[in-house]
């Protein structure tokens, strides 16, 4: 792994060639906002556009997303210029009009100095709950869980995560990874006694043989046993009681 140096906000910093700007910035305590990127998920990022920064290279400047911009020799990054702030503010205002109920977005808007969006807030048929359509849930389900129960459906303004035909998915294992990964807490997951409801389907939860707590969907145990060959006995106890 080739180590190289580059400049971020005037500071010379070391990085691995082709590592993304956002990871290195965070390691160095430089704050860049961003919602759709998760370093654990290879194909995440690039969609919310909140992590835009100025990239100066070979005498040219462009705005790039820090979450997937590869660091190479001679790169200089500026994270806090007036251009960056202006475009980021514009994006936050658009998101605020889309999901006015999202606390995460409201907080970002307050930071950027936006009280109210200048656009009509989405409501009624157009209501997106808190979903910013960033697609992270989809990537988690595909890459991390390996199930692909959900996908990004439709296109343009109608783009939305969902199951085929909006029916309860036959392949979903109820693990809830999508809900945990969601940056705006937009995926409803209800745990009620020994059942869990997510994506319109109810899952029976497995109870810990020691403390009696429902802690994992039976379907998820089946999936893990099937794909990894792990002994089913392992799941008798919850992580706390193991």
């Amino acid at each position: 792994m080739e180590k190289i140096k580059f400049v971020i906000d005037g500071k010379e910093v070391e990085a691995i060639r082709d590592q993304c700007v956002l990871d290195v910035a965070r390691q160095n305590g430089i704050y860049i906002p961003g919602l759709c990127y998760n370093p654990e998920v290879k194909f995440s990022g690039g969609s919310c556009r909140l992590c835009l920064v100025e990239a100066h290279q070979a005498g040219r400047m462009s705005l790039v997303t820090a979450c997937n911009y590869p660091i190479r020799e001679g790169l200089e990054i500026k994270t806090d210029t007036s251009l960056v702030k202006r475009i980021r503010k514009g994006i936050i205002e658009l998101l605020l009009a889309r999901v006015p109920d999202s606390d995460v977005i409201k907080e970002l808007a307050a930071e950027a100095g936006i009280d109210e969006p200048r656009f009509v807030k989405d409501e009624g048929e157009n209501y997106h709950s808190k979903c910013i359509a960033c697609g992270l849930c989809i990537q988690v389900c595909e890459e991390v869980v390996g199930v692909s129960a959900i996908a990004m459906l439709n296109r343009g303004p109608d783009k939305t995560p969902g199951t085929p035909y909006k029916k309860p998915s036959e392949v979903c294992i109820g693990c809830g990874a999508c809900a945990y990964a969601c940056p705006t807490d937009a995926i409803p997951m209800e745990d009620n006694g020994d059942t869990r409801k997510i994506w319109g389907r109810e899952f029976k939860m497995h109870l810990c043989s020691v403390c009696g707590k429902p802690y994992i969907p039976e379907a998820q145990i089946d999936w893990i046993v099937k794909t990894t060959g792990k002994d089913r006995v392992f799941f008798d106890k919850c992580p706390d009681c193991r």
Binding site: G46, S47, L50, I91, L94, F119, G135, G156, P157, K159
Partner: peptide, 18 residues
Amino acid sequence: LVGESCGKCTPCREGLRR
């Protein structure tokens, strides 16, 4: 363009319809 935007990124998906 609203009809043809893929909808992946915020500026295009949200900005065009506004």
